Structures are given as structure tokens and as C-alpha cells.
Simulated assay, not measured.
Amino acid sequence: MQEYESKEALLAAIQKTYHLFDKEFDAVPDNKIHVRLEEVDKTPQEMLAYQLG
């Protein structure tokens, strides 16, 4: 497991990773946020909720 120099470094890494993940959903139209594709087990909204939870 990676260790961080400080609490601030850990928080910065979490924020950076979250922003990268969140950006993946920018292209998803609002009317598709609840659509579950056959090859994916979660909707875009469920993926975001799971990661934030």
C-alpha cells in the first residue's frame, strides 16, 4: 500500500483521482445516466454513487 507524506498529500491524491474518474462521465448525456448497458453491471450514476459512498 502506498504511504503518503502527510494528510494533505493523501487528500490531494484522493481529489486528483476523483476528478479523473468524474471526468470520464462528462460525455454521458443526462438522459443516459440511469441506463445500464448489457456489458456493464452498473449505470453511470450507480458507479459514481458507489465510488463516493
Results as ranks from 00 to 15, higher is better:
residue 18 Y to F: 13
residue 34 H to W: 03
residue 27 A to H: 12
residue 11 L to V: 04
residue 37 L to D: 09
residue 39 E to C: 05
residue 14 I to R: 03
residue 7 K to Y: 04
residue 22 D to T: 03
residue 15 Q to G: 02
residue 1 M to Y: 09
residue 26 D to A: 14
residue 6 S to F: 01
residue 1 M to G: 15
residue 36 R to H: 03
residue 44 P to L: 05
residue 45 Q to M: 11
residue 2 Q to R: 15
residue 49 A to R: 13
residue 32 K to A: 08
residue 52 L to R: 11
residue 34 H to R: 10
residue 20 L to W: 06
residue 4 Y to L: 06
residue 41 D to T: 12
residue 2 Q to E: 15
residue 39 E to P: 00
residue 25 F to M: 11
residue 46 E to A: 15
residue 12 A to Y: 03
residue 41 D to Q: 13
residue 19 H to L: 15
residue 28 V to T: 13
residue 27 A to D: 13
residue 7 K to H: 02
residue 14 I to S: 00
residue 29 P to H: 02
residue 29 P to I: 01
residue 14 I to W: 06
residue 35 V to W: 04
residue 14 I to F: 08
residue 45 Q to P: 01
residue 42 K to G: 00
residue 5 E to K: 08
residue 10 L to Q: 07
residue 48 L to H: 08
residue 23 K to F: 13
residue 27 A to W: 03
residue 23 K to G: 03
residue 25 F to R: 08
residue 47 M to T: 04
residue 34 H to F: 07
residue 2 Q to M: 12
residue 9 A to R: 02
residue 29 P to G: 04
residue 39 E to F: 05
residue 22 D to Q: 07
residue 6 S to G: 01
residue 43 T to N: 08
residue 12 A to H: 06
residue 28 V to F: 07
residue 22 D to W: 01
residue 51 Q to R: 15
residue 8 E to N: 12
residue 31 N to Q: 07
residue 1 M to F: 03
residue 3 E to R: 11
residue 3 E to C: 07
residue 38 E to T: 13
residue 53 G to S: 15
residue 31 N to I: 04
residue 4 Y to M: 04
residue 25 F to G: 07
residue 13 A to I: 11
residue 5 E to A: 10
residue 49 A to L: 14
residue 42 K to A: 10
residue 51 Q to C: 14
residue 47 M to I: 03
residue 47 M to F: 03
residue 26 D to M: 09
residue 23 K to Y: 10
residue 38 E to N: 10
residue 9 A to Q: 02
residue 21 F to D: 00
residue 52 L to Q: 09
residue 34 H to D: 15
residue 42 K to Y: 09
residue 25 F to L: 12
residue 53 G to E: 14
residue 14 I to H: 02
residue 33 I to A: 09
residue 28 V to W: 04
residue 37 L to N: 10
residue 26 D to V: 08
residue 22 D to R: 06
residue 23 K to P: 00
residue 45 Q to I: 05
residue 25 F to T: 09
residue 43 T to S: 14
residue 52 L to M: 10
residue 32 K to Q: 13
residue 7 K to L: 09
residue 18 Y to N: 07
residue 44 P to K: 08
residue 4 Y to D: 01
residue 20 L to A: 11
residue 26 D to Q: 11
residue 8 E to I: 06
residue 44 P to E: 05
residue 12 A to R: 10
residue 7 K to D: 08
residue 33 I to R: 14
residue 35 V to G: 00
residue 21 F to K: 02
residue 30 D to F: 04
residue 46 E to Q: 15
residue 33 I to E: 06
residue 49 A to V: 14
residue 10 L to F: 14
residue 22 D to F: 07
residue 40 V to K: 12
residue 53 G to W: 09
residue 42 K to F: 11
residue 30 D to K: 09
residue 28 V to S: 11
residue 17 T to S: 08
residue 34 H to K: 13
residue 8 E to Y: 06
